[in-house]
Amino acid sequence: MAENKTKPTNVSAAKFIDALEDPQQKKDCKQLSKMMRAATGERAVMWGPSIVGFGTHHYKYESGREGDIMMVGFAPRKGQISLYLTCDIQQMAPLLEKLGKHKTGKGCLYIKRLADVDLDVLSEMIERGIEEVENSHSKSG
């Protein structure tokens, strides 16, 4: 069975964020880091070379594939920030409608800058994503 490519590293998440070239993205990532740390109670850990993650979640699919991944996290990308909420993002449709300017992928939320979204709604989405992970973990464990 294939092993996860995205794993926690010993690289400093704070140094990674401080090294970002775009001043607005750096500011937004620092704020996201504070939000996610408050929501999880966990410190930031680099997952691979470019994802800042918080907490750990062990998953197991019906196929037998299993592994560990962060509960929530984000990655600064060119022109946007990818947010990983480790849940079915489409289940949050009512919150997405109130969030503001964004795009979605299968399990990701993409924003250009935090000023484009309602931070209270984003905080609620982060907390719901964590709850979903914790509830699924308690059911499978």
Results as ranks from 00 to 15, higher is better:
residue 1 M to L: 13
residue 3 E to M: 15
residue 3 E to N: 15
residue 5 K to Q: 15
residue 5 K to H: 14
residue 7 K to A: 11
residue 8 P to Q: 13
residue 8 P to D: 12
residue 11 V to K: 04
residue 12 S to H: 00
residue 16 F to H: 09
residue 17 I to P: 00
residue 20 L to W: 01
residue 20 L to N: 02
residue 21 E to G: 08
residue 22 D to W: 00
residue 22 D to R: 01
residue 23 P to G: 05
residue 23 P to C: 03
residue 23 P to A: 07
residue 26 K to C: 06
residue 30 K to A: 10
residue 32 L to N: 10
residue 36 M to W: 06
residue 39 A to C: 09
residue 42 E to D: 11
residue 42 E to F: 00
residue 44 A to E: 09
residue 45 V to G: 06
residue 46 M to I: 13
residue 47 W to T: 13
residue 52 V to R: 04
residue 53 G to N: 10
residue 56 T to F: 11
residue 57 H to E: 10
residue 58 H to T: 15
residue 58 H to Q: 15
residue 61 Y to S: 14
residue 62 E to T: 14
residue 65 R to W: 06
residue 69 I to V: 03
residue 72 V to Y: 00
residue 73 G to A: 05
residue 77 R to D: 01
residue 79 G to T: 07
residue 79 G to K: 05
residue 82 S to L: 08
residue 82 S to A: 12
residue 82 S to E: 10
residue 83 L to R: 02
residue 83 L to V: 05
residue 84 Y to T: 11
residue 85 L to I: 12
residue 86 T to F: 08
residue 86 T to I: 08
residue 86 T to V: 09
residue 87 C to D: 12
residue 87 C to L: 12
residue 88 D to A: 14
residue 91 Q to H: 11
residue 96 L to M: 11
residue 96 L to N: 11
residue 98 K to V: 04
residue 99 L to Q: 13
residue 101 K to N: 15
residue 101 K to H: 13
residue 102 H to P: 12
residue 103 K to C: 12
residue 104 T to P: 10
residue 105 G to N: 08
residue 109 L to A: 10
residue 114 L to N: 03
residue 117 V to I: 08
residue 121 V to N: 03
residue 121 V to D: 03
residue 121 V to I: 10
residue 122 L to R: 02
residue 122 L to C: 03
residue 123 S to I: 00
residue 125 M to N: 05
residue 126 I to G: 07
residue 128 R to E: 07
residue 132 E to L: 06
residue 134 E to S: 07
residue 135 N to Q: 11
residue 135 N to K: 10
residue 139 K to N: 11
residue 140 S to H: 12
residue 140 S to I: 13
residue 141 G to N: 13
